[in-house]
Design a protein around this nucleic acid. Structure first.
Lengths: 340, 340
DNA sequence: ACAACTACTGTGCACGTTCACAGCGCGGTT
DNA sequence: AACCGCGCTGTGAACGTGCACAGTAGTTGT
């Protein structure tokens, strides 16, 4: 007679229904499902059976209300939106974090904060307690979001060293500086003498550290004519390469601070009639999917993205457990292909 | 004396605190914040001021508990993980939906369901009521997830026609068939006579519809030798192109069902010594970011991704409001570049 | 002058869960 | 025999919000 039940579809079985079906109390059901301590084998089995027959699934809102935990995490991207689909690095980070957290049954909320409006919205949203922690992918410094998050007391892990906030906020990052050294030394060992570089923006850790590694190796040879700044976009790489060719037409190698920019640089070199690697050797950074799709395939520095995402997740969960923020620097690796 | 308050940081201001600060009751605060109907101007202002001073933000869990709404949406990707960062289409869809929904203050949960384990997890998660609706990006048919979702009664919008479920589940899709016709007619108008095609997988709407459009134009000229199947990956495009060259070395054009596969095809054509477009014209599909980064730049069929994501969101919200599932077919557009 | 209506406000309840507490039987120790 | 501890169980409270309802004051209509 109670057809309305099945019709409503809204009222799903609650823990009461399970308790009734199993012939025990709500408390026992709750204990049986979480941890299962202090529950008799008989009761446990009855509960599990009742869960199966009723098709019970705990209501996350009710649980969150009492536990004060959202059981979810935000992935916040402060870069311009376009980056997400132009630069595969972001997709890899997103995908890695999502997968890592999915195994722990923690969903990932994707949010952006590239404009002022978005930043406010995201900030307010996170402050509302919708998530237990934040994975922050923001290379540029000076974004107020990081400070807002820190002030709100929510656990945060940054990807890449957060310039100006070292020691205050947790982060995982590749060892950019020694990675850059590896590449420049490699170019030297190939007999190159006029080694130029296209850097990332000077307000990003990658922009600073990779240039530092370049200077470590070249020392006084690192003349300003051999240094151009890019913005991690393909177009930026093209512009920087064109600028370098104008200033130092005799260059015989270029170390580019990202694969995407390197792809742009390759196009410009090709259009200028130079052969790669015969005339100019090109080294990238990231070892993203682009590196194997260019012609010739890019020699590059591999960022250990899988380890980075794993560390980001670990550092975040630790903080959620109450541990203080920590940092994780991961080694890079030279991958030699056809472009050098 | 109550230092503990500020120390705990856990206990944020509740609606009670706001009510007390504003000198009104909880009900009035609630009304003032939601809708604001039947609230005196004086009370409204007092509430807003109290919200500002207390820094109150509504507890989403408590709200969800009573409204039976999660106020969030899942973006579910059933394709192999790698696709997310190899094929920019997925990133664009994700980014578009996220942005569209962010404006409505609806966060997007990113979930994958490419393996059996993931599918179970995602299915259970959604059944738990964690989200109000699902944006399903799954081209391959035969994935049980769609039926599971449909059975659970949760609103779903698919991206691309869900083969075998038309009329039962809402979807937004580009008009693949007429897009393909546009491209093949364009190739013909360029004087090409041996027009081959690289299709998508035959269990995907794009694989079926774009091939149908190709056949619409060529009719009996569409010999089996001119048709190869790809899997929407770059490597798949390379393999298919190689196969075509083996079977029909005299082809003078090829319509490829995705830009990513077209990029692979270009590489193979280049390696075989053929010039594009002089010897072989190449047409892609999608107008993704890849299309402008290949050499030569790809003539392609533009998918109106922005309209697609907008429609997906609209169709989903409609269903959440109680409307029946509907479908939206959006027009495509030919974009002529250097490859034809 | 009284009723009816309008605009606004306060209060109790429910949402579904977890947690702290108390109760209970049972075996072993004092 | 009285006590204690232990494993297990049930019960009441609380988490913070929205909503239905009742109530109040002021205005209008007859």
């Amino acid at each position: 007679m109670s057809v309305e039940r099945s019709k409503a579809a809204r009222n799903r079985p609650t823990i009461h229904d399970v308790a009734a079906a199993a012939g025990v109390s709500r408390g026992t059901v709750s204990r049986a499902l979480n941890g299962g301590r202090n529950v008799s084998p008989a009761a446990l089995e009855a509960v599990l059976k009742a869960v199966r027959t009723t098709g019970y699934v705990a209501n996350p809102a009710a649980r969150s209300l009492v536990t004060q935990r959202a059981h979810s995490v935000a992935f916040v991207l402060t870069e311009p939106q376009q980056r997400l689909f132009e630069d595969p690095n972001f997709s890899i980070l997103l995908q890695g974090c999502t997968q890592e957290l999915a195994e722990l049954d923690v969903p990932v909320l994707l949010m952006t904060a590239s404009t002022e409006v978005e930043r406010k919205r995201t900030s307010r949203f996170i402050a509302a307690g919708h998530v237990d922690g934040v994975l922050l992918v923001s290379s540029h410094t000076g974004n107020p979001l990081l400070e807002e998050l820190r002030d709100s007391g929510i656990p945060v892990v940054a990807c890449g060293k957060p310039i100006g906030h070292e020691g205050q906020v947790a982060y995982a990052a590749a060892d950019d500086r020694s990675g850059a050294r590896l590449m420049v030394e490699h170019l030297r060992s190939r007999g190159r003498r006029r080694i130029a570089t296209i850097t990332g923006p000077p307000d990003t850790p990658g922009g600073v550290e990779r240039l530092a590694g370049y200077r470590d190796v070249l020392g006084p040879d690192a003349s300003p004519d051999l240094i151009a700044h890019g913005d991690y976009s393909r177009a930026g790489g093209e512009a920087a390469m064109a600028s370098l060719l104008g200033r130092a037409p005799d260059l015989d190698a270029v170390f580019v601070a990202s694969d995407l920019m390197a792809a742009g640089a390759l196009n410009v070199l090709h259009d200028s009639g130079r052969r790669v690697p015969e005339d100019v050797a090109v080294g990238g950074f990231d070892d993203s999917s682009i590196a194997t799709s260019t012609r010739p395939a890019l020699t590059t520095v591999r960022q250990p993205f899988q380890r980075i995402t794993r560390e980001m997740v670990r550092l975040l969960l630790e903080q959620i457990q109450g541990e203080p923020p920590a940092a994780s620097i991961l080694p890079t690796e030279l991958v030699v292909r056809a472009s050098t």
